[in-house]
Computed example of a mutant assay.
Amino acid sequence: MLKIGVTGGIGVGKSVVCRIFALLGIPIYDADTRAKWVMRHDEALKQELTDAFGTGSYTEDGELNRAYLAKTAFHDPQKLALLNSIVHPHVAKDFSDWVAANNSAPYIVKEAALMYESEAWRQMDEIIAVFAPMDVRIKRLLQRDTHRTQQDIEAIIGKQLQEEEKMARAQHIVYNDDKQLLIPQVLKLHEAFLSKV
């Protein structure tokens, strides 16, 4: 089965691209959503996170304490690396199980902002980088994430792998710049992927 990765920085429109693939009947693995699920339900992972970051990692009712983990790890590169090194192997296993469960599909798509940072690209056959100019991304994010300031958004973008590097490493680029039509770009890729399976 062909495994296609979709990546790009915050605000480029990865989810929109994946929704088009989903409408075409292709199974989509949303790494961010699944990571949150795994962090709530994988008992071994919960123990590892508690051991590494303290009992504040989870609330009394067993829910992930995202605010605590963000405050503890996000601003410290070493702690963030530790957090990722604990979480990513569990998400990788979850992805492998999900692929096995979707083995009748012609191909699958994995959406992941941290495709390269998490080494998830190694599990993919091809990568699509979604691109949007910085001003378009910031405008979208200010409209979508009303709780964030422009400074917050720029800080998040600054921590992610540069778009130029993502585009250079990808086999395909989809431009979501509000100038080029998105659906024809995705349809062309869909047809290309189907021709390979």
Results as ranks from 00 to 15, higher is better:
Ala120Ser: 09
Arg122Ile: 10
His90Ser: 10
Tyr116Thr: 04
Arg34Leu: 07
Asp42Ala: 11
Leu82Thr: 14
Pro133Ile: 10
Ser104Val: 07
Pro89His: 07
Arg137Glu: 02
Gln123Ser: 15
Lys36Asn: 09
Gly9Gln: 09
Asp125Gly: 14
Ala113Ser: 10
Gly62Gln: 13
Ala192Phe: 13
Ile10Lys: 00
Gly9Ala: 04
Pro184Asp: 09
Val174Lys: 04
Gly25Val: 13
Ala112Val: 03
Tyr68Lys: 08
Ser118Ile: 04
Met115Ile: 04
Phe74Gly: 08
Asp30Tyr: 02
Leu181Val: 01
Val16Thr: 15
Phe21Tyr: 12
Val12Asn: 01
Tyr107Ala: 03
Gly11Phe: 06
Ile183Ala: 13
Ala129Trp: 00
Tyr68Gln: 04
Ala100Val: 12
Met115Gln: 00
Gln185Met: 09
Lys14Thr: 07
Tyr175Cys: 03
Val16Ser: 12
Lys159Cys: 12
Ala100Ile: 07
Met134Asn: 11
Gly54Thr: 03
Asp76Pro: 09
Glu119Ile: 08
Asp97Glu: 15
His90Arg: 13
Leu23Pro: 04
Ala35His: 05
Arg137Cys: 15
Asp177Trp: 05
Glu60Met: 06
Met115Lys: 03
Arg140Asn: 12
Lys93Gly: 02
Asp32Asn: 02
Ile20Gly: 11
Thr146Trp: 08
Leu189Lys: 13
Ala120Asn: 01
Leu45Val: 03
Val136Pro: 03
Gly13Cys: 03
His75Phe: 07
Ala120Cys: 01
Ala100Asp: 11
Ser118Arg: 00
Gln150His: 09
Leu83Val: 09
Asp145Ser: 11
Arg66Val: 10
Leu161Lys: 09
Asp30Gln: 11
Leu189Ser: 13
Leu161Gly: 02
Pro89Glu: 10
Pro77Glu: 07
Ala52Ile: 02
Arg169His: 04
Ile86His: 06
Asp51Ile: 06
Ile108Gly: 11
Gly158Leu: 12
Ala129Asn: 00
Lys188Gln: 11
Leu142Asp: 06
Ser15Leu: 02
Val109Met: 04
Leu80Gln: 15
Lys188Gly: 04
Ala112Ile: 01
Asp125Leu: 09
Ala52Tyr: 06
Gly56Ile: 00
Lys36Thr: 08
Leu45Phe: 10
Ser57Gly: 04
Phe53Pro: 07
Glu60Ser: 15
Gln160Pro: 10
Val99Gly: 00
Leu82Phe: 06
Val186Gln: 06
Asn65Lys: 02
Val197Glu: 08
Val87Ile: 15
Cys18Gln: 01
Leu181His: 09
Ser15Asp: 04
Gln180Glu: 10
Ala22Glu: 15
Asn84Phe: 01
Leu189Ile: 15
Ala81Asp: 07
Phe74Leu: 11
Val16Asp: 00
Leu194Val: 05
Leu114Ala: 06
Ala92Phe: 12
Ala155Ile: 08
Ala168Ser: 14
Asn84Trp: 05
Gly9His: 03
Ala129Tyr: 01
Glu164Pro: 02
Pro27Trp: 03
Ile26Met: 11
